[in-house]
Design a protein around this nucleic acid. Structure first.
Lengths: 224, 224
DNA sequence: CGAATAGTGTCTTTTAGACAATATTAA
DNA sequence: TTAATATTGTCTAAAAGACACTATTCG
């Protein structure tokens, strides 16, 4: 009969170690057809109405996962219901936060504009959407987080069609291409794009109707 | 005049939150010309001489960076002086460790065999080198860490020549290719490899002497 | 029919890879 | 000279990209 080891390999009890606070900071990105990738910023101190905007974040609560903390912070700070945050990096400089010893785990979440835009419109004093190129001068390590988030999302979308499943199925190749253009931040040739993604998609046999030109074939994702 | 905010945005003091222990676990990889990528394992409980091997790890100490904890753990557990650990992933299941609430930040370190092999030979009871394909059945999330570490290193080496600068300069293309073969785990064609990396290298104008065949040009890395 | 959009044919350029030929040295 | 290794030439196959053409619908 054995009890769990509440000590580390040198015999020191775990509870005797000082422990850091752990925070999460999240770059919520949304692809806008007009302005490319936008990042969501929240006012850092809503009491003072200061001009300091930052990425939403929070401290990790007991028994909570990092993803859970990310989703909670998005709900609290922006009234958003996100999903599937991805880890980017742990910022660990012991002196990065003058409130104490705080590790911050940076995350990225990609959400459809239909979900994010209304929040920014309803609460302009608290929530802002800004093109990623113009999101600089942020506090802490937030400039770097935005950069990593953009790189992560662009790499994922260059790899395969809509990996985050932002588009509701079924969709046309035009819809898919507009989404990818917003993520990439540049125009993509329709024919080249089509051949890029075609093998990963499955035709529904249906087509759009009532639109201006030739009807477009409707697709869904092939796998699964 | 203002004091630092020792509280979070909801007014709760930081110190009032329960905080997790933070650990680091590290996959130390080394490219072996014969056996491909090897991973370093340490005996989990050196007192009992149990057959449980695992990745070296430790708890983060106060005022320490994650990279610092990684290097300290390698020094303590294997007498290794490493450098430049890279973060892979944070494992955050609140119940992953029955000793308590422990977050683990997985890392990867790539070291030259000349540094790692002697350690394993001198302390076979504590330290083991195993081909990555045979490093399964490890405790905690260690199987997954090894997998991520291998993927990370292989991707980096497929991208550019010896990004971790394991080879002392100057080196021949043969030396460089042998290293990349060990990382990739397969043979690479000399001519194809040469054209792949040539643009990233800078000739020293020197050549090897006294070897069997035609002398090989000596190179260094081009950038910087 | 004409405007508008969807989709395909085909050519060029680039890249990766394979294979063979040439180059240079030690023994 | 021969064995051994380094380096380059060249061909083929695959992929990416550009451009023009055909197809189908609405008004």
């Amino acid at each position: 009969m054995s009890i769990p080891e509440y000590h580390d390999s040198s015999g020191r009890r775990l509870v005797d170690y000082p422990r850091p606070s752990v925070a999460v900071d999240t770059a919520v990105l949304t692809p806008d057809p007009e302005r490319g990738l936008l990042v969501l910023l929240v006012r850092r101190d809503s009491a003072t109405r200061s001009d300091a905007w930052a990425l939403p974040g929070t401290f990790l609560h007991e028994g909570e996962t990092l993803a859970g903390a990310v989703l909670r912070s998005l709900d609290q700070k922006a009234g958003l219901r996100g999903q599937a945050p991805r880890q980017l990096y742990v910022f660990d400089d012991p002196r990065r936060d003058d409130r104490g010893w705080v590790l911050s785990v940076a995350h990225v979440v990609l959400l459809p504009p239909a979900v994010v835009a209304p929040v920014a419109e309803e609460r302009p004093d608290d929530v802002q959407l800004r093109p990623v190129a113009e999101a600089t001068g942020l506090p802490f390590d937030h400039d770097g987080i935005v950069e990593m988030a953009v790189a992560q999302v662009r790499a994922a979308y260059a790899e395969r069609p809509d990996p985050e499943r932002l588009l509701p199925e079924p969709f046309t190749l035009r819809d898919l291409r507009r989404l990818h253009e917003a993520v990439a931040g540049r125009r993509l040739q329709p024919d080249v794009f089509r051949r890029h993604v075609r093998d990963h998609l499955q035709s529904t046999g249906e087509a759009t109707r009532g639109s201006v030109g030739r009807p477009a074939e409707l697709f869904r994702h092939a796998s699964r």
